[in-house]
Design a protein around this nucleic acid. Structure first.
Ligand SMILES: [Mn+2]
Ligand SMILES: [Mn+2]
Ligand SMILES: [Zn+2]
Ligand SMILES: [Zn+2]
Lengths: 127, 127
DNA sequence: CTTAATTTGCGAATCATTCGCAGAATCATT
DNA sequence: AATGATTCTGCGAATGATTCGCAAATTAAG
């Protein structure tokens, strides 16, 4: 295992993610690809999503139904505000965490190493 | 469906959760019960966990391996700081969110309806 | 063009969780 | 305490998402 091949199926999966800009499951991506007659196997969709998530180019989230969904994303640390109507995902920076981190340390003796945050609501366009 | 029966198996599952105070999967709870010769079926463990989560007496979280885990919890809105060494879960209040909410509204036109937060690190006892 | 390495697609296998249902337990009423 | 209606339990089978195994197809180099 030296390099990583650049292949058609992988680019097709990536293209869908870049285009949609919202959390999609493997099955949804597979469905969208079929609609545009791009036949990529579901296995390959799964494998590509794992790859993208591993490289930090996609961010994963388990939805309410237990399915893992992915959205195209850049590596910088940030969080997401997801619109419950249209699914639009907006990046949110996280300065707020600094105060929480110090509070955790002083009040609970807890050394914060990592955190996760997600926001849900209605985006400007959907109001 | 009128009332809810109070049964032995349910109390055994609840007792484990109260005792352990950390996120446990259905399988783990089932295993702990068997060790103490309390034979509750895995199905019943699942059903009881759903019940507790529904009543807000337990809080659920999908762990890294994709398993749903539960911890005993009270209804008040708060978040959790999970120790990566011992699994201890500490409650964390969330004032910090207010500033994030207003930032979302003014900067992104996003109306915040709900949010999730989780913290990971090392608890005081484990340092 | 050849060849070695990687990727794909397919179906089978996994694994957590859910269902269906018959028998057991619980609760309210006599 | 016995009855009957309602709710639970345990079991094994079904489900559904994800992963695996492997032969055939693609890709990157020389
Ligand atoms: Mn992002
Ligand atoms: Mn709690
Ligand atoms: Zn929207
Ligand atoms: Zn600890």
């Amino acid at each position: 295992m030296r390099t990583q091949y650049s292949t058609r199926p992988r680019e097709q999966v990536s293209a869908i993610l870049k285009r949609e800009q919202r959390y999609l499951s493997a099955a949804e991506i597979h469905g969208l690809l079929r609609k545009s007659r791009q036949n990529v196997s579901l296995s390959t969709v799964y494998r590509t999503l794992d790859l993208l998530a591993g490289k930090g180019e996609a961010s994963a989230r388990v939805d309410a139904g237990g399915e893992t969904t992915y959205v195209v994303c850049d590596q910088t640390h940030h969080h997401h505000a997801v619109c419950r109507k249209c699914g639009k995902v907006q990046d949110v920076s996280c300065e707020a965490i600094e105060s929480v981190a110090s509070a955790l340390r002083t009040h609970h003796g807890f050394k914060l190493a990592d955190h996760e945050m997600q926001f849900f609501g209605t985006c400007g366009a959907c109001k």
